[in-house]
Simulated scan of single mutants.
Amino acid sequence: MTIPVFYSISDDFTKYAAVSLNSLVKNSNPENDYTVIFLNQDLSKEHQDQLVALGNDHVHVKFFHIDEKLVKPIQDRKENYLRADFFTMSIFYRLFIPDLFPQYDKAIYIDSDTVVVDDIAKLYNTELGNNLFGACTDSSIQYVDKMVKYIKDVLDLDPKKYINSGMLVLNSKAFRDEGFIDHFMNLLEKYHFDCIAPDQDYLNEIGDGRILHLDPRWDAMPNENTEPLPNPGLIHYNLFFKPWHFDNVQYQDYFWKYAKETPFYEELHAELDNYTDEERSEDRAKLDHMLEKEDSTVVDPNNWAHVKAKGERIKL
């Protein structure tokens, strides 16, 4: 049995992805077979070679180039901005995994700003049943009042059930059988929903009622309001809590432990050392900028809540 794990990266994110990959490899079970596939559009040969070198006999590192035509309908528009300040196509790649890889009926997707501190095969062995995917409640937003209001009033969803899309156990067969990607594209082209977290909002809306909520240890996030989990399985340095930009971030020791064994360790430490207090302040201000969308989207006649109230089918 092969355990397929997917990342989506741009070339400038390779050094962080290398840390995540190294942690996955170090915690893999040699009795299992893992295939790690990096979805990309611009990954250099040098970076590909560096990532391949982190694999071993039972963790095979591969690459898949995303065709421009496949994602052409997803345009550089303000409603598709990540964190409300820039556009990156790579956040949408995860939605296409089931259709691009029909040989897999189940797959794992994880973001590159993660470290895996338990055998990811345990996550893969989750029984999904009729659910579209398994994921963890987004713990990073539970104490952000404006985000909670956005989920309630704009998305018309329960904030306690709103999942983070940085770790997904995909029921790929159900995605294909039920036409997930066609439904996503239809909604995208018809409504151009203005989203705070574009791919994540679509997954929460389309999957509503068919999301298996997993143990939070599989998407542990640094949070200034809570104590760290004692036994995280996967750590996700979500939003602006990046240990390569901030010191004293929850779970940072895990990151540096695995970074040390990659060719990017010195570069990552230099990035932390050279990151200025002004840049850190700007990062924190970006959260407020991101949340400003709530003010406009709550009165948008084509927001998720209003469209659902008109009877449009959103859930798959």
Rank of each mutant, 00 (worst) to 15 (best):
T226N: 09
Y251P: 04
Y275T: 08
T262L: 08
Q250K: 14
L214A: 14
L239T: 12
Y265D: 00
D215Y: 02
N225W: 13
A220F: 04
N231F: 12
P216V: 04
S296T: 11
Y265A: 00
D288N: 11
L272D: 00
N225L: 13
K286A: 14
D247C: 12
P263T: 03
R217K: 12
D219T: 03
T262V: 04
L268G: 04
I235P: 05
H269T: 02
P216D: 07
F264I: 05
A270G: 11
W256Q: 07
A259S: 05
Y275D: 03
P263D: 09
K293M: 10
T297Q: 04
L287Q: 12
L214R: 02
K242W: 15
L272P: 00
K242I: 14
A285K: 06
L229S: 12
P243Y: 00
R210K: 13
P222L: 14
L234I: 14
K257M: 09
F255V: 04
E282A: 14
F240I: 15
D253V: 06
P230A: 05
N274V: 03
P228H: 06
W218C: 00
L212F: 08
R210S: 10
M221G: 05
R210I: 09
G209V: 07
L229H: 11
T297G: 02
T297L: 05
W244Y: 11
T297H: 01
F246R: 12
V249E: 07
S281T: 11
H236G: 06
E282T: 15
P216T: 05
E266M: 00
Q250F: 06
A220V: 03
L239E: 05
L272F: 03
P216Y: 05
N274S: 10
S296F: 13
D288S: 12
P228W: 10
L291I: 09
R210Q: 10
Y258P: 04
R280E: 11
W244T: 00
S281K: 07
D219V: 04
L291S: 07
N223P: 02
E294K: 03
E294Y: 13
L229G: 08
E279R: 12
E278P: 11
